[in-house]
Nucleic acid binder design. Structure first.
Lengths: 236, 236
DNA sequence: CGACGACTTGACGTGTTTCAAACGAGGTGG
DNA sequence: CCACCTCGTTTGAAACACGTCAAGTCGTCG
């Protein structure tokens, strides 16, 4: 990992994504939910990353485990011709980087300006060796990451564009403070690279859902779910 | 989008898939590789499943952990209209069913006649509570399952048919006893449902690779890799 | 106001799916 | 021993969903 402060090279002009107030509070509370969550809080050092800042790169030694405090993080892998697959988005309270392999299989970047708790893996493993419940929680966290990826796998393997976007919206809604109105921290390109589509197809699907009165799009980054039932039906 | 009905009847007349002799030996040896591997062997009871036999169903309580002794196993999930996504194939030596959630997210079936070691999860967890190395190995196994799914996810999200089939062949080759000649235990339909394609596309891609002199197909279930470099290039 | 980046929309091309038919290896029965 | 059936697989032709390329819109900021 590299300790980096100023990755945000270029345009700082875009207004930074602001975590909605209600979510910020819920994120603070989440700090002390769960065994390892709080353990991480005790052991960790907070770091800040600006938009698109690299948190770690593919192939680097996996010496740390991370927990999002604020903002949003994406993990992804690039094929050699530039195709990108995003494997997950992490929001406040989420832990990432705990694949037990010695090196990272993905890269991680801040989607928006973010603060991340960083904990030495070795310290956590040492603690887990003595405290059985910590070991158990590490396992559970990994298993839940597995579950999320398996779910995405089904979306990528067997769903069409509408179904993929519906799945994405329901997933984001499940994590939002206001289940009805979603603030998207990520761009259309991010969504496309998450869902295995192109940016154009994602955009078209959004407007299609809007025309069907399934969602509303007050702005491109704000989605109002008007007909959750329709989305669930699409979610197969 | 594809609506596919599983037509394979349980009926039995097809000659059972026979594990090649060399592989069978290697499987026996694998019995005592690795800490948990051997622990499982000590604690487990062997069970036999016939072709297409169900090992567990989606939603069932996840009370057991499994290890393939002989044969092959697939885990999969069905969408409500019959679309199927296979999440993994397990060959002799592989451990599966260790998602820590209390209920199975997938179903598991024997691809061919198989014997599987079955171990009570609670017993293993209890042992892990006392033996730190067992807990560690459980975590590692889950993390390696995570890695495999992440890899499949990239295939499903960002690769075309040729690249998917190439990835599949290289993966199977990596597990085969004879790296040059692969015996496929699974049908074209299984491969299609693993790679997020249709059976016709898989078949066409196989013949295309054969025409390109990248592979040979002495029989539909036997694949000879003639140009591994070409496959690796396709693997992006 | 003008420039820039993110997003949307349009027209067209294409890879994969769909639907349909033929093939071929194994097993069965006459 | 050969005709015949079955089931997995292959092949063909046509349809379609998504990708590609290109232009246009919108909101933000200098």
């Amino acid at each position: 990992m590299q300790i980096q402060v100023l990755t945000e090279s270029i345009s700082s002009k875009n207004r930074p994504y602001v975590q909605p107030a209600a979510c910020a509070i819920s994120a603070r509370n989440r700090r002390f939910n769960g065994k390892v969550g709080s353990t991480l809080d005790m052991m960790g050092a907070a770091m800040s990353f600006s938009r698109n800042g690299e948190i770690y790169g593919e192939g680097e030694a996996a010496d740390y485990i991370y927990k999002v405090e604020s903002g949003a993080v994406r993990t992804y892998k690039l094929l050699d011709d530039g195709r990108r697959q995003i494997s997950a988005f992490y929001l406040p309270g989420d832990v990432f980087g705990l694949e037990a392999a010695s090196n990272h299989y993905f890269s991680a970047e801040a989607v928006t300006t973010s603060t991340v708790l960083v904990v030495r893996r070795s310290a956590l493993v040492a603690l887990a060796a003595r405290q059985n419940d910590v070991a158990n929680e590490l396992w559970t966290l990994t298993a839940s990451a597995l579950g999320k990826v398996q779910n995405l796998m089904i979306t990528l393997g067997r769903k069409n564009a509408q179904e993929r976007v519906a799945a994405f919206l329901l997933e984001m809604s499940g994590r939002a403070c206001d289940k009805h109105t979603i603030e998207l921290p990520m761009s259309r390109q991010d969504i496309a690279d998450y869902l295995g589509l192109t940016i154009e197809t994602v955009s078209r699907t959004f407007t299609q859902l809007e025309n069907d009165a399934t969602i509303e799009l007050p702005t491109s980054r704000r989605v109002v779910l008007r007909d959750r039932g329709a989305l669930k039906r699409l979610n197969a």
